[in-house]
Design a protein around this nucleic acid. Structure first.
Length: 670
DNA sequence: ACAGCCGATACCCCTTATTG
DNA sequence: CAATAAGGGGTATCGGCTGT
């Protein structure tokens, strides 16, 4: 803030500043730099310390203000640019037929980014952006389903109902309920009028009449609404020819609907139709004995009471909503048989229970069930661990900013706190579960460790479920199964990894060998791993030589894998170095399973194994030989088939003998 | 090497709408 | 109605960049 008069150089600088200003150029630091103007260095030179700041002051500008002004300008420019980008993108989305409602675009990913940006650029946010975008193509936001929240009033409901009616929409309860588009209106109608029926009636439409008309006009092609006479004819004819007359019979569907129209009121109309036919045509049908007896009806008061008691014993909620939803047959039966005794409540009371009390209990129970598990911060921490594994890096706020998890995280003190809790929970996990998380996050070594650590378990599963397969195949399938389980494993569910993986392993092996499993699912690896890897390697090398083209020979070698992806996948699995029963003798102990299968991970001292093996040799040298050869204790390990060939036994026989041998060894090691 | 700037993003909190 | 999800506003921090 120099009060001193300016020298001529300084004056020149000030003039240049004013000149820029006059031309509408920016006079903030950045703009000048961007224009490669030497004004800054001039100012520094002539104004000394403080440089440009001083010069600005001398020119009568406040540095802070100029800065702010400039940043505002940039912001405006940026926003202007965004504005067109956003509008273009929305139009493109609209053209692609993608949903434009804020609830849809806010779900995450690119659209969420677009949405947030629209919020900063447009004063009224997303809604305005969509409106502007669609206005350019001559449409309104409503066309894309965008609408604000609706404060429903009876008037609005009536207007909407009238609109739908004019469009020829089926206003029946079932149709409204089924259609998510109309759900809001439907719910609002029920809320404000007590029932949908009332809502429609309040609009001045006769609900029953409407539904009847609609049904009639939408009758499937060719079907004619039966006349009264035709209906009676039909009943008579069926009765005389001995055809079944019970209403559940398929051939009677149109007759049934006609009966509701011809013989109202609705309930029991079929019965009435039959009775009328019987009376007018002198058929002498007794509905009760001739028709109803054909209907397999398990319900009566007794069975209803029994069913209620059964449900009560299994602690199922018995308030009417739950029963209506879960046991609709029981519900309608009870309401029918107890129609004069208080309906469902009457039935429950008849079962000797207190309905009011049960209803209260049931409601509470349901409310409890509905409560999110995340009320427990530890559960939330587990979910976050899963999430972290899913994204594969340290969990950031943006990963959970999808509102659902975010709200819970906030409720429990923010993400920093949750990170601590996550760490605690992680430490409380078992080794397998920790490894599974790491593996899911993309840690190859963790996957490898997981395989190694569970070797005994894999062997156990292979022995139990891989009987129909070549042993080595089974081993590969089982280990693939374990790997498949990794990305789908969720800590939150509270399962042990190994029990979860078990089902994948079993599934993998139980699939038909040679079956058409392709793509990202299981691949069957038919032969010995090392051989296959070298085959694949060779094939790829040859392919590379030919500039990516596989020779016929090479293609044949790998053709079992069907696709290049599968070949790669095989390579990946191989590179995990799955431990085919080892060449190092000391690892053998790992393969002996406990006979009860409860502690497959228990390992045994190698020396003891050797002793046990010697013992076995005494008892049954053939068993010992099979074990030695199949696990390569003396020499290279051999497959069951190889051993079978040299012993002149069948493959299956050798496999069984090996199993027996392992079992015996296991017992000796106890 | 260090400080300051700046835009973007991370983080947080409170209000309001929706849901069951 | 209670529980949950969405809406929307704010401050703090990050990380790239520049000038000293």
């Amino acid at each position: 803030m120099s009060e001193k008069p300016l020298n001529k150089y300084q004056q020149k600088v000030v003039d240049r500043i004013l000149e820029r200003r006059k031309q509408g150029l920016g006079i903030d630091f950045r703009s000048i730099q961007q224009d490669k103007d030497n004004l800054i260095s001039q100012a520094k030179h002539h104004f000394g310390h403080g440089g440009y700041k001083e010069a600005l002051a001398a020119a009568g500008f406040d540095w802070q203000e100029i800065r702010k002004e400039a940043s505002d300008v940039r912001k405006r420019q940026r926003h202007e640019k965004w504005r067109t980008e956003i509008i273009q993108e929305i139009q493109a989305m609209h053209a692609r037929g993608e949903p434009l409602r804020s609830t849809d675009v806010r779900k995450g990913g690119e659209t969420l980014r677009l949405y947030k940006r629209a919020q900063t650029v447009f004063e009224q946010g997303w809604k305005e952006a969509v409106g502007a975008a669609l206005a350019e193509v001559g449409k309104k936001g409503e066309d894309a389903g965008v609408r604000g929240r609706i404060n429903w009033t009876p008037e609005k409901i009536s207007i909407e109902i009238n609109k739908l009616d004019a469009q020829g929409t089926n206003l029946s309860y079932g149709n409204m309920l089924a259609d998510p588009e109309r759900r809001k209106l439907f719910k609002a109608g029920i809320n404000l009028h007590g029932s949908w029926n009332e809502a429609v009636k309040a609009t001045g439409i006769d609900y029953d009449e409407h539904v009847r008309k609609w049904m009639a006009s939408h009758r499937r092609g060719g079907e004619q609404e039966l006349t009264r006479e035709a209906l009676l004819d039909l009943i008579e004819e069926r009765w005389r020819s001995g055809a079944p007359l019970n209403p559940s019979h398929k051939a009677l569907s149109s007759a049934l609907s006609a009966s509701t129209r011809l013989f109202p009121p609705r309930a029991g109309t079929w019965k009435r139709a039959v009775e009328i036919a019987s009376a007018e045509r002198n058929l002498g049908i007794d509905y009760q004995t001739h028709v109803l007896k054909n209907i397999p009806n398990k319900w009566n008061k007794e069975s209803i009471v029994a069913e209620i008691l059964r449900l009560h014993e299994t602690k199922k909620p018995l308030h009417q909503n739950a029963v209506f939803k879960n046991y609709s047959k029981l519900w309608s039966a009870a309401n029918y048989y107890y129609r004069n005794e208080g309906g469902w409540a009457g039935a429950v009371n008849d079962a000797g229970l207190d309905y009011e009390q049960l209803a209260e209990l049931g409601r509470n129970q349901v409310a409890e069930q509905r409560k999110s598990p995340f009320n427990d911060p530890r559960k939330l921490a587990l979910a976050l661990l899963d999430k972290e594994a899913e994204v594969g890096s340290r969990l950031r706020y943006s990963h959970i900013a999808g509102k659902g998890l975010e709200n819970w995280v906030m409720k429990h003190g923010g993400i920093k706190k949750m990170r601590d809790l996550m760490e605690q929970e992680r430490n409380a996990l078992g080794e397998n579960e920790r490894l599974a998380l790491a593996a899911r996050a993309g840690d190859k070594r963790a996957a490898e460790q997981l395989l190694n650590a569970n070797k005994p378990f894999i062997l156990l599963i292979v022995n139990q479920h891989g009987k129909r397969l070549h042993y080595d195949d089974a081993l590969q399938l089982a280990s693939l199964g374990l790997l498949q389980a990794i990305p789908r494993f969720r800590i939150l569910k509270g399962n042990k990894f190994i029990s979860y993986a078990g089902s994948y392993m079993r599934n993998a092996m139980q699939r038909e060998p040679g079956g058409t499993y392709s793509g990202s699912d299981t691949i069957r690896i038919p032969v010995y791993a090392g051989v296959k890897e070298s085959q694949v390697g060779q094939a790829e090398a040859k392919a590379a030589k030919r500039g990516g083209q596989l020779s016929r020979e090479a293609a044949e070698q790998i053709s079992r894998f069907e696709t290049v992806e599968n070949v790669r996948k095989v390579r990946r699995v191989m590179s995990l170095d799955f431990p085919i029963p080892g060449r190092e003798k000391s690892t053998f102990a790992d393969f002996i399973k406990g006979t009860d299968g409860t502690e497959p991970e228990k390992t045994v001292d190698a020396k003891k194994v050797r002793a046990a093996l010697e013992e076995l040799k005494e008892e049954d040298p053939r068993l010992a030989e099979i074990v030695q050869r199949s696990f390569g204790l003396e020499d290279d390990e051999e497959s069951c088939r190889q051993i079978a060939q040299s012993l002149k036994l069948s493959y299956e026989c050798v496999r069984q003998l090996r199993q027996t041998a392992l079992k015996k060894l296991g017992e000796k090691l106890r």
